[in-house]
């Protein structure tokens, strides 16, 4: 056997087990999800093939549209807010030396927390008087309390806040690494030209950070589209209420699959989720390429 051949055999030996694993635990389940989405199946009985009926039913289901709307609301609020906040903090942190390490740690620590645990902490904060911290403080100042989780309009932002809060640390650290990677000479040249701070930001910093921004947009978009832990733990009985005001797609899938055991219906919704993620990723990769 030639050396090349021998090495090829070694290579296949090394990756044989992983290949079997990826086929069995990634590819086969993916195909399975597609095929289940075309059936009516309550997990116990027989699968009945019903074509695209599940998708048609979803199309006509107002609750599903509400859920999709919520999901995009999480995305459209979450991504810009978290990116702007983290950029501001990273940019400011980058300029200071005194207590730099401690401050950075304070911003980063929430990233290491367990979403479930923090969801309960925030849920407690949001309670009406006489329980919740925020409303207790407002009450002491004589201000009428906010409804937070008990309101159809305030609940979604209230559930989103801990998700933004927890992700901020990661984005700040990545932004800071991106800022550090910008050659110092660019700034010096700009200073000699007498450019204002704002112009430096617009013409040097932001364009130079473009790959970082695209990367963080992709990562956080996917994260907000898949929000689940916070909603499940912060809403009454994990229902995504009140009146479905906070229910995102993943929670809707969970309820259909593992509480009502409507497997076909749930799988159809996962196909929808998959399609949305695919489209968003493709769009964002395009943006990155054009840059």
């Amino acid at each position: 056997m030639s050396i090349d051949k021998k090495r090829a055999v070694t290579a296949w030996c090394f990756i044989s087990v992983p290949i079997v694993y990826f086929i069995l635990v990634r590819f086969y389940p993916t195909l399975d999800a597609f095929s289940i989405s075309l059936t009516d199946w309550n997990i116990v009985g027989k699968k009945t093939y019903i074509g695209f009926d599940n998708f048609v039913r979803l199309w006509h289901d107002p609750v599903f549209w509400q859920v999709l709307g919520n999901t995009f609301e999480y995305l459209l609020l979450g991504v810009p807010i978290s990116l702007i906040l983290s950029f501001i903090v990273a940019h400011s942190l980058d300029q200071i030396r005194f207590g730099h390490g401690v401050l950075r740690a304070c911003y980063f620590i929430p990233f290491l927390t367990t979403a479930v645990a923090m969801a309960w902490v925030w849920r407690w904060f949001y309670q009406p008087v006489p329980v919740g911290m925020i409303n207790l403080a407002l009450g002491q100042m004589g201000i009428k309390q906010l409804d937070f989780l008990r309101s159809t309009t305030e609940a979604l932002p209230a559930v989103l806040a801990p998700a933004i809060w927890a992700g901020l640390g990661f984005q700040i650290v990545i932004f800071m690494a991106g800022l550090r990677a910008i050659p110092q000479s660019y700034y010096e040249a700009a200073k000699i030209d007498g450019a204002s701070g704002f112009r430096i930001l617009r013409e040097i910093t932001l364009p130079q950070l473009r790959p970082t921004i695209v990367f963080l947009t992709v990562i956080s978009s996917i994260g907000f589209l898949r929000i689940f832990d916070q909603v499940y733990n912060m809403t009454q009985e994990g229902e995504g209420g009140p009146l479905n005001a906070t229910r995102p797609l993943v929670l809707h899938i969970y309820k259909a699959a593992f509480e009502r055991f409507e497997m076909g219906m749930a799988a159809a919704q996962t196909v929808v989720l998959f399609t949305i993620l695919l489209i968003i990723t493709i769009i964002q990769l395009r943006v990155l390429k054009n840059g």
Binding site: Y28, P29, T30, R226, I253, T270, V271, L277, T281
Partner: peptide
């Protein structure tokens, strides 16, 4: 590209 949420039903 495959979200975990899509796989949990087949995994289950």
């Amino acid at each position: 590209m495959i979200p975990t949420e899509m796989l949990v039903i087949p995994w289950y």
